[in-house]
Amino acid sequence: MTTFLAFYQHLGPALTALVIGTFLLAGMVKGIIGLGLPTVAMGLLGLAMLPAQAAALLIIPSMVTNLWQLAFGGHLNALLKRLWLMLLLIFLGTGLGTLWLGMGAEQWVVRALGAALLIYALSGLCLPTFRMTPPTERWLAPLCGWITGIITSATGVFVIPAVPCLQALGLSRDQLVQALGLSFSVSTLALAAGLAWHGSLGAGEISASSLALVPALLGMWLGQAVRQRISAVLFRRVFFIGISLLGAHLLTSD
Score class of each variant (00 low, 15 high):
88 L>D: 08
22 T>F: 01
203 A>R: 14
187 S>G: 14
142 P>K: 07
98 T>K: 08
161 P>M: 11
224 Q>M: 15
31 G>D: 05
145 G>N: 07
152 T>E: 08
77 N>K: 15
236 R>L: 10
221 W>V: 12
100 W>F: 11
192 A>W: 01
187 S>E: 03
22 T>L: 11
234 L>Y: 10
175 Q>K: 12
254 D>K: 11
12 G>L: 08
164 P>T: 04
60 I>K: 00
38 P>L: 09
39 T>C: 07
38 P>E: 05
243 I>D: 02
163 V>L: 13
92 L>F: 11
72 F>I: 12
107 Q>V: 14
123 S>P: 05
21 G>C: 15
73 G>M: 04
147 I>S: 05
233 V>Q: 14
168 A>L: 11
33 I>P: 05
18 L>S: 14
205 E>F: 03
153 S>D: 03
15 L>I: 11
83 L>A: 09
102 G>M: 03
133 T>S: 15
3 T>W: 05
113 L>P: 00
252 T>R: 10
162 A>H: 01
96 L>R: 06
1 M>I: 12
132 M>S: 09
187 S>C: 13
189 L>T: 06
221 W>K: 13
214 V>L: 14
223 G>Y: 04
239 F>H: 02
52 A>S: 14
84 W>S: 13
80 L>P: 10
102 G>I: 01
216 A>M: 02
47 L>D: 01
150 I>V: 15
107 Q>S: 15
190 A>V: 03
174 D>Y: 09
209 S>F: 06
34 G>Q: 06
28 M>K: 02
42 M>G: 03
239 F>P: 00
102 G>F: 02
2 T>C: 12
195 L>G: 05
92 L>A: 15
89 L>P: 01
144 C>G: 09
79 L>D: 00
244 S>D: 06
231 S>W: 09
65 T>N: 08
218 L>Y: 03
202 G>E: 06
189 L>V: 14
34 G>F: 05
44 L>E: 06
175 Q>P: 11
14 A>G: 10
